[in-house]
Simulated assay, not measured.
Amino acid sequence: MNDPNGTPASVVEAAFRCYRSQDREAALPLYAEDFTFTSPQDDHIGKEAFFRRCFPTADRFSEQRLLHVTPADGELVFVHYEYEPATGGRYRNMEAITVRDGLIREVQVFFGGRIA
């Protein structure tokens, strides 16, 4: 177990903080070795590909704000967030994140649309 005192929601919140601050060294231990990431642009990529392709993208956003971090059960956490790309506009996405034994095992991203 990565953090015996951490809830799945707190692990997810820590991962989002690491992403926004681009603290790769702090983020790596939050993810299981068999981690998979799926989004409309990525299909079940592994940990190495995620940290190479997806993690270093925080500079594309001028803002990202977690709206809801909601535990669904003992492992699954739903995250609803709003972000503003550096190019402008506002968008919302949802993620279903599985945390088991204190480690993020799977992330599924569902893209939302532009909001007013």
Results as ranks from 00 to 15, higher is better:
residue 74 G to A: 15
residue 74 G to K: 14
residue 75 E to M: 04
residue 75 E to F: 10
residue 75 E to V: 07
residue 76 L to R: 09
residue 76 L to F: 04
residue 76 L to A: 09
residue 76 L to H: 09
residue 76 L to Y: 05
residue 76 L to G: 05
residue 76 L to D: 07
residue 77 V to R: 09
residue 77 V to E: 11
residue 77 V to Q: 10
residue 78 F to I: 12
residue 78 F to E: 12
residue 78 F to W: 12
residue 78 F to A: 12
residue 79 V to Y: 04
residue 79 V to W: 05
residue 79 V to N: 04
residue 79 V to Q: 05
residue 79 V to R: 05
residue 80 H to A: 05
residue 80 H to Y: 10
residue 80 H to M: 06
residue 80 H to T: 08
residue 80 H to D: 02
residue 80 H to N: 05
residue 81 Y to S: 10
residue 81 Y to N: 09
residue 81 Y to V: 07
residue 81 Y to I: 05
residue 82 E to R: 00
residue 82 E to K: 00
residue 82 E to A: 00
residue 82 E to T: 02
residue 83 Y to L: 00
residue 83 Y to C: 00
residue 83 Y to R: 02
residue 83 Y to H: 02
residue 83 Y to P: 00
residue 84 E to S: 14
residue 85 P to F: 04
residue 85 P to G: 13
residue 86 A to V: 15
residue 86 A to L: 12
residue 86 A to T: 15
residue 87 T to E: 15
residue 87 T to H: 11
residue 87 T to N: 13
residue 87 T to S: 15
residue 87 T to L: 13
residue 87 T to Y: 03
residue 87 T to M: 11
residue 88 G to Q: 01
residue 88 G to T: 03
residue 88 G to W: 01
residue 88 G to M: 02
residue 88 G to C: 04
residue 88 G to P: 04
residue 89 G to W: 01
residue 89 G to R: 00
residue 89 G to Q: 03
residue 89 G to I: 01
residue 90 R to Q: 05
residue 90 R to K: 15
residue 90 R to Y: 02
residue 90 R to V: 01
residue 91 Y to I: 03
residue 91 Y to L: 02
residue 91 Y to K: 13
residue 91 Y to A: 02
residue 91 Y to G: 03
residue 92 R to P: 00
residue 92 R to H: 06
residue 92 R to C: 03
residue 92 R to D: 01
residue 92 R to K: 09
residue 92 R to G: 01
residue 93 N to W: 02
residue 94 M to G: 14
residue 94 M to Q: 09
residue 94 M to E: 08
residue 95 E to R: 05
residue 95 E to F: 02
residue 95 E to K: 04
residue 95 E to V: 06
residue 95 E to Q: 11
residue 95 E to P: 04
residue 96 A to R: 09
residue 96 A to T: 07
residue 97 I to H: 07
residue 97 I to V: 14
residue 97 I to Q: 13
residue 98 T to Q: 11
residue 98 T to K: 11
residue 98 T to D: 08
residue 99 V to C: 12
residue 99 V to K: 12
residue 99 V to Y: 13
residue 100 R to F: 04
residue 100 R to N: 09
residue 100 R to M: 04
residue 100 R to A: 08
residue 100 R to D: 06
residue 101 D to V: 03
residue 101 D to E: 15
residue 101 D to P: 08
residue 101 D to G: 15
residue 101 D to I: 10
residue 101 D to R: 15
residue 101 D to Y: 14
residue 102 G to F: 14
residue 102 G to E: 11
residue 102 G to I: 14
residue 102 G to C: 14
residue 102 G to M: 11
residue 103 L to K: 15
residue 103 L to D: 07
residue 103 L to P: 03
residue 103 L to F: 12
residue 104 I to A: 13
residue 104 I to P: 04
residue 104 I to D: 12
residue 104 I to M: 15
